[in-house]
């Protein structure tokens, strides 16, 4: 079995009556760099935030390295649907197997409470969950996120910003020799700071840094967790123009080093240069996806053509 790094399956996200995502699926493979583009309000940031469950998807599943982050979505499992009382009733009334499944899926017929669909149904749901589920916090440690507003911890120095999560992880793993572990984490943090040329800022508080410095530190703070996937939510949108370059350069370096990355961005030139694949999100759907060449030079979707004509 080829294990995908990150997989979102049929994600729906509603905020009250507002439907932001309307069934989005995609797979991120190891080492892949994916850019998500689209107009403001298209749902691209929500899609990214659903990947690490900062937003809980209304329906759908998120898988990280073959492990399930979300609850089981019964509509994604035909074998589960077939166990439901609703399905059995439809089949008894003379409906064909696939027709019944299709009807249940399209009309959202499964009952909210698992027990209402019978014990077999509930047992299978529980089994799938038990076999595949990973605790949210553990899943998140595999995929760190970089934010538009940097979100460095204001009450901690740069060094402590980088060290906090690795130290907490070590505590969680009940590492025996914490002193040695902390020294190791500190050394790693300093190495990361040197890599971005900011080792002299180690003991400075974030309020004393420029936007570009903050974002580069936020990126190495994520790197300190040795993530398997990095999520970037418009990492350069809050930066002064002269600082965008330094952040993009660091991201290019990561991409070249083989980091798996999902990037929501407005920087089309950057997306074209570093991406293996580009997703165009519009009105809650992935309207088009493909290589940067296909998406930028030969867009098929009229909304994408319109979008590109405005931003390029």
């Amino acid at each position: 079995m080829i294990m995908n790094m990150l997989e979102v399956k049929n994600i729906y996200k509603n905020f009250g009556s507002l439907k932001v995502l309307k069934g989005v699926s995609t797979t991120v493979e190891k080492g892949e760099v994916i850019s998500i583009i689209g107009a403001s309000g298209s749902g691209k940031s929500t899609l990214l935030r659903c990947m690490n469950l900062l937003e809980e998807p209304t329906f759908g599943e998120v898988w990280i390295e073959g492990q399930l982050m979300t609850p089981v979505d019964p509509y994604l499992h035909f074998d589960v649907i077939r166990k439901s009382k609703t399905y059995k009733k439809l089949v008894e009334s003379g409906m064909e197997d696939m027709d019944a499944i299709h009807k249940i899926k399209s009309e959202d017929l499964l009952l909210e409470k698992h027990s209402q669909e019978g014990s077999e149904y509930k047992a299978l749901m529980d089994k799938i969950y038990k076999e595949n589920h990973i605790e949210t916090n553990l899943g998140r440690r595999k995929m760190s996120m970089v934010f538009q507003q940097f979100n460095l911890f204001n009450n901690l120095t740069v060094l402590d910003n980088i060290m906090l999560a690795p130290i907490e992880t070590a505590k969680y793993n009940k590492v025996k020799d914490m002193a040695a572990e902390k020294a190791k984490i500190k050394e790693q943090a300093m190495t990361l700071l040197k890599r971005i040329g900011l080792e002299d800022k180690a003991n400075v508080y974030p309020s004393k840094l420029s936007g570009g410095q903050k974002q580069r530190i936020a990126i190495v703070r994520s790197l300190a967790m040795n993530p398997d996937v990095m999520l970037f939510d418009e990492p350069t949108s809050a930066l002064d123009p002269e600082m965008i370059g330094e952040v993009l350069d660091l991201m290019k370096e990561l991409a070249a080093a083989g980091m798996t990355m999902v990037i929501v961005t407005h920087e089309m030139g950057f997306a074209r240069e570093v991406s293996d694949r580009v997703l165009f999100v519009d009105e809650g759907y992935i309207k088009e996806e493909g290589s940067p060449k296909d998406v930028f030079d030969n867009p098929k979707d009229p909304r994408l053509q319109d979008f590109l004509s405005k931003v390029l």
Partner: peptide, 12 residues
């Protein structure tokens, strides 16, 4: 954003 950054890093 402070909470989000912490939770995204897998802190409880």
């Amino acid at each position: 954003g402070q909470t989000e950054a912490a939770r995204a890093l897998g802190l409880t």
